[in-house]
Amino acid sequence: MGFFLVMKAEIIRSLIIMRRYWFRTLTGMAIGYGMLMVLIIGFMSSRDTITDAVDGRFADPTTATNFVLGFILGMFAFGVVGMFTQGIQGMAQSGVLEQLCMSPHGLIVNFLAKATVGAVTSVFYSGIMVWLVTISVNGVLYFDAFPVIVLLTLTFINLLGFGFMMGGLTLVFKQVGQVAILIRMALFALAIFAREELLEINFLISAVMHALPITDAAICLKYVLIYDQGAVNGEYASVFTHPSFYFLILNCVVWTSIGIACFKVMENWSRSRGTLGTY
C-alpha cells in the first residue's frame, strides 16, 4: 500500500523533473548514442585488424549487437547500483535522506520505489538507444515481448539486491561511494563480455560468474534478443529452459535476501552512529 503511494510520488517527481530539464534529457541521449557509436566502430575496427577480416566492418552484425546490448545492459547495471551508492551519498549530504528516513513507510520501501521508477525510465531510454544503434549497425534484434519483460524484471531484481547491499554499506561508510564506482565498472564490463563460453572455462570461474549479479541476466537477454532463443543457430529452445535462467532466479533470491538483510542491519548501525546526515 505504502509502496504504491511512494511510487506515485516518485513517478510524479521524475516526470516533472524530466519535463523541466528536457534539454538535458535529450542531450544526454544524443551523447549516449554518439559515444556508443564511436565505441562500436572502434571496437569493430580493432577486431578487424586482429582477425584480419576482409569482409568489411560490420560483416558479423551479431558481434556488434552483442556489444551494443551488453553495453546498454552494463549502463543499466551501472545506473541501478549507482542509485544506491552515489544516490545515497548525495542525499545524505543534502539532507533528503533524513527526510526519507522520517517517512513512516521506511527507508527500504522508499528506495524500492525510487529504484523501480529509475529503472523503468532507464529501460525506456535504453530501449530507444538499443533500437537506434542496432539500426545504425545493421543488426537484428529479436524482440519476443514476454521473455524480454520477464528477463528485464529479473535483471532488475537481481541488481536491486546487490544495490541494497552496496547502499547499506554507503549509509555507514560514506567513502564506499568511491569504491563502488570500481565495482560498478566491473559490472559494466561483465555485462558486455558475458557469454556462455565464459561459463565453460573452468569450475572456479564459472562459479564466480554465476555468483555475480549480472552475468546470467546478460546471457539470457542476449540469448533472447540476439539469438532468438537459439533459432538463429538452428534449434529453438525457450529461454525458460536455459540453465542460465535458473541461475538467474537463484541469483535473484540470494542477492535480494542478502541485500535487504544487509541494508536493515546497516540502517540500524548508521542510526546508532548518526551517519544518516552529513557526518
Partner: peptide, 15 residues
C-alpha cells in the same frame, strides 16, 4: 527542481 506545491505533495505522500 520542484515548486513548493509539488514539494508539499511529494512529502505529503511520503507521510
Amino acid at each position: 527542481p520542484l515548486t513548493p506545491m509539488e514539494n508539499l505533495r511529494y512529502y505529503g505522500n511520503l507521510k
